[in-house]
Design a protein around this nucleic acid. Sequence first.
DNA 1: GGCTGATCATGC
DNA 2: GCATGATCAGCC
Length: 222
Amino acid sequence: MKLPLPPQSETGLMYRANELSGATLGEIAHSLNIAIPANFKHHKGWTGQLIEKALGATAGSKPEQDFADLGIELKTLPLDYQHKPLETTYVCYAPLTNLVGTTWLTSSVYNKLQKVLWIPVQGEREIPPDERMVGSPILWQPTPAQNQLLKEDWEELVELIALGKVESITARTGQVLQLRPKAANGKALTEAIGINGEKIRTRPRGYYLRKNFTQQILNNAF
DNA sequence: GGCTGATCATGC
DNA sequence: GCATGATCAGCC
């Protein structure tokens, strides 16, 4: 397999995604001439980056959808033996300042989640990375009910951030969406709003989808 | 055993 | 530091 070019259509993208289903990460990595780590202790994003390359996504750290032309975001989803999500799903970086005027419909969370290509992958730690199998792709768009849940959580979280209560937000806040630390380490700091409206320094945060939410997506797909 | 908070790698 | 790709691992 040569390094794929970006897909020109949704149909083309789905065709490639279906071709990957049933293959192991080792087979895919081998065809792309990519080295396979023994575990993910030091290569946490390896699976996602492998699938990105296999599907022709433009690697990078742009705050956009993976296939911006197609309006599609790509996410791998690690599953356990019961086909349930093993991990929460990172959505995007969380702005902690300049929130005046931001709305759900203009948020990065909304933008990223309006169309997602989910690629399930076996994720049990006892399965070596090269033996993990890729499952059937799921092209998902949130239902009105799912969008409402996301909107409610997003608005609650943004309001707390805007009111200077970011330090009081824990991973327990939110029904389907969470705000959690997202940084290289505990020393990373970014600007946020304090309880008296002053500037403070805090750990950078990111938005994550809870497992109950991605589980629901899987259930509706099969 | 599951979850929250912490952490790893990479590019710019 | 920001933003992407996420999983690790200690604590409850």
